[in-house]
Design a binder for these strands. Structure first.
Lengths: 229, 229, 229, 229
DNA sequence: AATGAATGAGGCTTCATTCAT
DNA sequence: GATGAATGAAGCCTCATTCAT
């Protein structure tokens, strides 16, 4: 995380994007001090551009020069807001982890049967992943490009996410509404494998809308978990 | 690129390893002319070492120098057998694609109900993937590091594999033994996402043996495909 | 390539040397921002050194390391100003083509009989070539070492130069003051062959001063063009 | 010169080609011991191929591998006949120097007025140069790529050639049939510059036949030498 | 007479980062 | 806040030549 002064109006981070609304950046940001003609603060622009380029070409194949050129800032400016190129990548991870965890927590806290909550969580993560395909592309491909310390942090956060999802599966297994012959951990890994793979095959201009894929995926999961009659 | 002589017994490729036997290199190779103290031909050693390093550190973070040092050959020797570092990566892809396709073709050609064939195919790809985890790690992470031409070739071969698997799903759907409310394409992508993800979470020293994971995965797939009663 | 800032007073190019004054670099450059102890901007120093080395040892036998060592800059600095070693060579061509074309245009635009203008042009190109013998050495020897695109550009500019000189010959032939039994194109190639060859045999410490050679060459050309009586 | 055994039938050198007949290699060479399917001895094929490649791409840009591939022999074979790549280039020089000298000596020894002998020599060198344009391309471009010792040898032979031609000019000046206000040395350099430049502009598919160019060039030389009336 | 695998030195280029301004 | 010239280490690759066979 870059040690930059917090921009006025941003809760705790100059690059705090509205990730929870699927990457749609808040339109009213243009009056903050670091904004420029493009109506976007410099650090946000850098992060947006870096995400796109890292997904397109890979982290190591993207040079800092390309990032600053695409964001229309200078190198000095980038190093003013971010410690290093690596820091930029860490921000991508922080953003996606924060977003997914927040959404899962909200869904887990809602009422309804466990089946309903799993269905909503399973579907939501698909829709959100599709809305941020670049993040998904980067997520597993670039983990090894973070420093060891940052990798650990990402894995820890990821595990918390995994555990929350797993707790829903276990809840259903204990209630007898989900089959319990498969370990809950394995079920979670099984499903999230499918989800991450979306970045490999999903095409926005394809036949299926994001919610359709979400519905199909959630149904496949729930069907796989139906107790054998 | 110099055409390297075909190793005795290998149909057409100097790096033709016994991939189908899960990466265990043929022990009887030590008497071939280009073998050295390590009992392995130079190109094979290079490919084995490169696979390990690419999986450990990523393609871009692995230098040719590291590869040749680990394989105990000189850079010149490496470039005698491979056009480029990229070519080494392409060989990794060629090997894994060849292996997986061969195995699926054999399973698809066996008798038994379509359910049996899908179960065997689903289980086998899990076991084989676990036996070659490095290949799986590399597969999706490094596709973008191949030249565009080689990427196309890999994708084409991958599509053929996907289509063969899909044809089994469709066969089951037409027979009414598999639910047909989910497109077969999507089912295949769903399942192979889970499979590729194995390289992210599976640990050889963990609780589950490869065949156990294979059984669980195959059952999850088949259960997800049960027609609704 | 980074666009290097235009040196004060130079119309559009950081390496805009006073080529028209025979390679004597402007003495007043020492106060520009990128100048250093040697009183010369980095790109100019690089170009001067590269010209000398390319002439001495040939383009392919001159390493970038030698160039930067001789110019007393680092490799990174060189690549900050020039795209490639090739680009350095391209600048040599650009400079000499610009210089010769400018001089010929000025001479062609002066008054006097066509004989006088041809004499001045023929003599001037000899004197200028001798003053920049390194450029002449490089010119034909290294053309094939440029990229195809840059070669085309050089040939195009060279053709324009040739055509302007040819137009003077034709003017004389039409006035009847030059023999017209030889095609003007061939006359131009004949003469410029002689001129380029200067770099092979002329020695600054030899018997003949540059202007003497210029006078002899111009006379040989004009005598060759005398109409037969 | 390679220290190879002289092939049967070749006067003193395995690569002794019929240079004096303009590069048309003797057709009856197929029965010599080192000949192969192509009807050409290995060293001759290597030399022919090397000449073409050196002219096309330059000496340093032509690899030994390319030469042996194009000649359809192996590297070992090449090093059997030639000491080094450099040696191959030296042979190109030896061949062209030998050929031109022989021809000039024959012409100088014939009868006729000095004007006639100069005309024949001047015309002949043009025709011969055009018939061996690759040699001409290489001649000045690659001199610096020979070892210092071989360069000296080439320059010495070249000077002898120059001196023989110059002696004809002086003979004419002493007889008063050539103008003597220009030093004979300079006249020779002037003319041979034009001749070497042929490789830059002459195109076999152009308008002018080799003999036409030879006639024009010889006439330009003689006209330039006309005593002023 | 010929092979071609292997060497090892050297070449060109890229790039994250720093720092004086 | 911001600039961009400069650094210096590292990366990939080429190639003439040798040598065991």
């Amino acid at each position: 995380m870059p040690d930059v002064p917090t921009a006025p109006g941003a809760p705790d981070d100059p690059v705090e994007t509205d990730a929870a609304t699927n990457g749609q950046l808040a339109p009213g940001a243009s009056d903050e001090s670091t904004a420029d003609a493009s109506g976007e603060s410099v650090p946000r622009r850098l992060l947006a551009v870096a995400t796109r380029l890292f997904a397109e070409k890979g982290f190591d194949r993207t040079s800092v020069q390309e990032i600053v050129d695409a964001a229309d800032v200078t190198k000095g400016a980038m190093y003013h807001y971010f410690d290093s190129k690596d820091d930029l990548l860490a921000e991508v991870y922080a953003r996606v982890l924060r977003m997914q965890m927040t959404r899962l927590e909200e869904i887990a806290a809602t009422g309804g049967t466990v089946t309903e909550r799993v269905r909503r969580a399973a579907s939501d993560v698909v829709v959100t992943t599709i809305a941020n395909l670049d993040d998904a592309t980067i997520f597993f491909r670039s983990l090894h490009q973070l420093t060891a310390a940052k990798q650990r942090e990402v894995r820890t956060k990821r595990r918390h996410y995994h555990e929350l999802f797993r707790s829903l599966i276990i809840e259903g297994q204990e209630q007898g509404v989900f089959a319990d012959h498969v370990p809950a951990d394995l079920v979670v890994d099984f499903y999230f494998g499918s989800v991450h793979h979306l970045s490999t095959w999903y095409r926005p201009d394809g036949k299926l809308a994001p919610t359709e894929v979400g519905d199909h995926y959630a149904r496949l999961l729930l069907d796989a978990l139906r107790p054998s009659s």
